[in-house]
Design a binder for these strands. Structure first.
Lengths: 224, 224
DNA sequence: TTAGTGTTAAAACAAACGATTGAATCAATC
DNA sequence: GATTGATTCAATCGTTTGTTTTAACACTAA
């Protein structure tokens, strides 16, 4: 899923990321990070200066690696599809598709999603700079796509749709471990489930936006 | 919003809850809890046995206080509305309404929502018992309501809808502090915003479920 | 009064914490 | 082979952690 970790700095970052994701920065000791990465106790402070700096590095790393560009790309050719309902539906579908790929199909380590949750839970002022640089532009372009789908939509309504969008998708990231408790609930690693989520969420948003449901989304749920 | 805190035990629970919500159990020291509640350092261990027990007590407290019953009530009279699309829409609306009331209108302390997020983030096996007792029945009845709204829906599809439901609503709880970073984004304490969220989420779910949108939801966004 | 009960107070405990130190080790360059 | 700069190492610093201890306090019942 990633190129093999070689340097101590990389090993620290990934070990710390996995631990931060589960136990948070307060619940993770630099001794645990050192042990998990095979490095020395002093390595964290040598390579990152402090535990907090390492935490920020982890967050920046995750946000950079999971950046989504599809809404931005779509806006470049907005004249091709803006105002054409069926193409708008397709645009929504393709954006959802990218999110699913980023967070559910194993292209990234499992703990990336949880780091996202940590950011949402404690958006410390120290994080604002990183968030404004790496997250906000994505939100802005996504909001703009939604406004293209529903001409005349105000900012407040666009924010509601943006929240629906983010909420629907992030829920699976956030509730990943929680869902496992529910008896009989499918795992997110299940490719069939991923496909169903993509189709369901896309259909849900398309119907909500009062756009036409494309033919390829009209079939029944696909089981794995 | 709550009856005045009198006993040391209550003071500890509320001070700890507020601190746990923001900083997590690892990031909150017993000394901080003691200071915040005005109690002695030894009080936590005297009244709750340990910090972890206090954490569990906080979680149980929040889950008990924020329990939602409307889907359960609706199922008692399911014969009245099952299979009748417009009444199904209304059922969906009323369930969303209860969630909004529980989490956004200030009937509970602000930190209750964050405790929910902590549960999602780290559903430790020790929490399973509490979750199965206080959360699962609610999920089950909610899933059943959704199945009433779409006759013939299988369990897997019902789970997708359940996740959409929870995801849409919990997103606002989870992202509360994050949303504040977005320039111009409304605050959740804004009553007009709460109304808009209720209408938006309800409409979204109703349209997704291919149910008729009731008249009282067909107007434009209500601004505050 | 006396004994008992429930609660609070200050002090102390060992353990673990983040961070620092100076020596040791390594690879590259002269 | 010597020198240099980057990295790793074990040991240790002062602090903070959760918990325990012991004494004190307030109150009731005998």
């Amino acid at each position: 899923m990633e190129q093999p970790v070689v340097t101590t700095k990389d090993a620290l970052l990934h070990a710390a990321g996995a631990l931060f994701a589960v136990h948070g920065i307060e619940g993770t000791s630099i001794r645990a990070i050192a042990k998990e990465s095979g490095a020395n106790i002093a390595a964290v402070n040598y390579h990152f200066g402090s535990k907090e700096n390492l935490y920020l590095a982890v967050i920046r790393h995750v946000l950079e690696k999971t950046r989504c560009h599809r809404s931005e790309e779509l806006l470049k050719h907005r004249r091709d599809w803006e105002g054409k309902p069926l193409l708008c539906s397709e645009a929504v579908y393709r954006i959802v598709e990218e999110y699913i790929q980023q967070f559910f199909t194993g292209i990234h380590p499992r703990w990336y999603g949880r780091i996202f949750m940590r950011i949402f839970l404690q958006p410390t002022p120290i994080l604002w700079e990183i968030i404004n640089e790496l997250v906000m532009p994505n939100f802005d372009s996504l909001r703009e796509v939604l406004q293209c789908c529903r001409p005349g939509m105000g900012k407040e309504e666009a924010d509601l749709w943006l929240d629906s969008f983010i909420g629907e998708l992030m829920h699976y990231v956030f509730a990943e471990d929680f869902l496992l408790i529910i008896p009989g609930h499918r795992k997110l690693s299940d490719a069939g489930y991923q496909k169903d989520i993509l189709r369901h969420v896309a259909k849900m948003l398309i119907r909500g936006l009062e756009l036409p449901v494309p033919v390829f989304l009209q079939e029944d749920i696909v089981h794995a």
